[in-house]
Simulated scan of single mutants.
Amino acid sequence: MYFFLILMVTLALGYGVLMLRYTLGWKRLKNYVVAVPRMGTTPVTVIIPARDEENNIPPLLEALKHQTYPVNLLEVIVIDDFSTDNTADLVRNSGAPNIKLLQMSQLLDKAQRLNSYKKKAIEMAIGHASGSLIVTTDADCIMGPRWIETLVHFYEDRRPKFIAAPVSFFKEDNFFKKLQSLDFMTMQGITGAVAQLQSGTMCNGANLAYEKEAFYDVGGFSGIDKIASGDDMLLMYKIYNAYPEGVMYLRSEDAIVRTLPVDTLKGFMNQRIRWSSKADKYEDKRLFWVLVLVYIFNVGLLAMAVTAIFLPVLWPWLLILLLFKVTMELYFLLPVAQFFNKTGLLVYFIPGQIFHIPYIVLAGWLGKFGSYQWKGRNVN
Rank of each mutant, 00 (worst) to 15 (best):
M1V: 14
F3W: 11
L7F: 08
G16I: 12
Y22W: 14
W26M: 05
W26C: 12
V33H: 13
V33N: 07
V34F: 04
A35S: 14
P37Y: 03
T42E: 15
P43Y: 02
A50K: 12
E53F: 01
N55C: 06
P59H: 01
H66M: 12
Y69L: 11
I77C: 06
I77Y: 03
I77D: 04
F82C: 03
T84E: 13
D85M: 02
T87Y: 00
A88K: 10
D89G: 09
S105D: 07
Q106L: 10
S116V: 02
K120W: 05
A121V: 11
H128P: 03
H128T: 02
H128N: 09
A129I: 04
S130I: 10
G131Q: 05
T137E: 06
P145V: 02
R146E: 13
Y155M: 01
D157G: 12
P160Y: 00
P166L: 05
E172W: 02
K178S: 07
K178N: 07
S181P: 13
D183I: 13
Q188P: 08
T191W: 02
T191C: 15
V194G: 04
K212N: 01
F215V: 03
D217E: 10
G223N: 02
S229K: 14
G230E: 01
D231G: 08
M233W: 04
M236R: 04
N241E: 06
A242D: 00
G246M: 00
Y249K: 10
R251H: 01
E253W: 04
E253C: 04
E253K: 15
A255K: 10
V257H: 03
T259G: 13
V262W: 10
F268T: 07
W275S: 10
Y282Q: 03
K285P: 09
L287Y: 11
F288S: 11
L293T: 01
Y295V: 07
I296D: 03
F297M: 11
N298Q: 13
G300C: 12
L301K: 11
L302S: 06
V306K: 04
T307P: 08
P316S: 06
L321G: 06
L323T: 15
T327Y: 11
L334Y: 14
T343G: 02
T343A: 08
G344L: 06
V347K: 15
I354C: 08
F355W: 12
P358G: 00
L362T: 07
G364R: 04
G376S: 05
R377N: 05
